[in-house]
Each structure stands twice: as C-alpha cells, then as structure tokens.
Amino acid sequence: MSMPDTQQSPLVADYLRRLDAAATGLPADRRSELVEGIREHLDSALEGADQSDDAQIRAVLDRLGSPEEIVAAAADGEPPLPQPYHGQPKAGAGALEIITVILLAIGGIILPVVGWFIGVALLWTSSRWTTRDKLIGTFVWPGGYLLPLGLGLISARVCTTVGGPDPVETCEGPGMPLWLGLPVAAVLFLAPLAVVGYLLTRARRSPAGAP
C-alpha cells in the first residue's frame, strides 16, 4: 500500500504517479513541466474540496483525461521516431527484387531479348525503387549482358597461325586491337554489374530511411 500524504487524496497521488510513469519517453524538463502543470491544475481544481470526496475527485480526473492521453498530446507534433510515410513495411531486397535484377542483367540471354523486357516491367511496377532508380536500371545499360554477349559474337576475331620456321598469323573478323579491346570488354562486363549492385543496394535500404 502506498502512503498518501496528508494533503493529497490517494486518487490524485495515483494519477500523478501514472502520469509520471507514462511520461518517461519525454525529455526530463518537459516531463517535470507536464507533471507540475497537472499537479498545479489539481491543486486549483480541488481547492477547498473535501479530499475524501472521491466522486468529486474522480470527476476532476475524468475531465483531465487519462495520463496516457495527455502524454500522447505532449509527444504529438514531435518526431521521436521516423514515420514511414511511404514505401513497403518490410525492409531489404525480397525475392521479387532479386528476380527483377537478375532478369535485367541476364534475362535477355536466358529468354532472348524478351527476358530483359520482363525485368524492366517488374522494375517499373515495383514500389521499392524510386523513379530515378528505375530510369538508371532501364537506361544505363539496356539489355544487361545481352549487348556484351552480342558484341562479343559479332566481333569475334578468328585467327589462324600457319606454323613453320617463320609463322604467319592471319585473322578474320572485325577485331579490335588489344589496347582498345580490353577496356571495352571491361566496361561491357562491369557496367551491368554496377547497375545490378546499385539496384540491390537501393532495394535493401529501409523504406523509412532518407529519400
């Protein structure tokens, strides 16, 4: 049993205790300001009242509202937690996002050309990515690995070396010199990979996070 002080009804003491407990989430100065304000209110409202008149005290407390309600009003308008205004409730790249990214990268090879378009359709219907992400995913490297593969086949350089003491190499096809071929091959290989990495990173970030 709690000991009520001589001036205060146990009902009032209990109410103030509940208020103080409910307000633990508020900054310390705001919490004490709130509890003191309500205490002062009760002092004024019950001035001259019979401290054993529970009905009257209950009526005053009822008009105040519940401690939880008052604390909720105190927390209102403050953003203690980031509010998820938009986006999916779940965080992280789900199966659908991973399938989308795979199709964008190699869908055009698995299901020639069409596979990539399916990936694009999934990309644009997903709410996980922003419009900017979707534009990057679509236009930075259209076709994914279809283009490098196609270029590789077209520009394949077939070389034959005729042996002997003085070997002669003859090549056919629109090949390119090594100094140009290596960087081009690197870009062709890395660019779709970069888009895949970018989209997965963007999908993984929490929807409640910064836009």
């Binding site: 709130l34 304000g37 309500i38 008009r63 509202g65 519940s66 309600e69 008052i70 009003a73 105190a74």
Partner: peptide, 13 residues
C-alpha cells in the same frame, strides 16, 4: 476541449 489535461502540453509548446 475534451480532455483538459491535453492543454498543458499545448501550453508547454
């Protein structure tokens, strides 16, 4: 006013 107590957080703000 429905809950008088909510005026106090308002005054604080």
């Amino acid at each position: 006013v429905t809950s008088e107590g909510t005026i106090y957080p308002l005054l604080s703000r």
